[in-house]
């Protein structure tokens, strides 16, 4: 048997050094974008409830749709809508960045930082443009 065989007791045979815990590390652009991609994905999943609400009330009588539009126009609705829009812009941008990585493109540290800042710039710009153009949406 070789040195690497798994012990039957399932205990580590030797006290190996552990990697430093997450809290030890200074937050970096790469790590922040990575976890934010996840968080925005979770938010968007919750946002799908809004999407279903929109399409279902649209299929119903006009009263139901007007009520839903009024909800979206309220302060709470606007915050939800803005959260969904910014999460959508961000998640789409970081998602495309991930697809490039999956294809093996852009792995170097400088390229990672360039794409990271590009993703942030795109998200802010796209959110602002769509939000401003969409102002007439609820009027």
């Amino acid at each position: 048997m070789s040195e690497t065989s798994v012990s039957v007791t399932n205990k580590p045979r030797k006290q190996r050094p552990l990697s430093p815990h997450l809290q030890i590390y200074k937050p970096q652009l790469t790590t922040i974008l990575s976890i934010s991609h996840r968080v925005s994905g979770i938010l968007l999943t919750l946002g799908l409830v809004l999407f279903t609400g929109w399409i279902v009330t649209l299929a119903g009588p006009q009263d139901s749709f007007d009520a839903f539009q009024a909800f979206l126009g309220s302060i709470g609705g606007q915050i939800l809508l803005f959260g969904c829009l910014s999460a959508l812009c961000f998640h789409t941008a970081t998602g495309v960045r991930h697809l490039f990585w999956d294809a093996g493109v852009g792995y170097s540290i400088p390229a990672t930082y360039r794409s990271g800042y590009a993703v942030l710039g795109f998200s802010v710009l796209a959110t602002a443009v769509v939000w401003i153009l969409g102002m007439n949406w609820l009027s």
Partner: peptide
Amino acid sequence: TVKALCFGLCAVSVFAILRI
């Protein structure tokens, strides 16, 4: 559970689109 909720909301949404 989350998968079932997704399928459910998806079915409801598609039905709403078809109905319109």
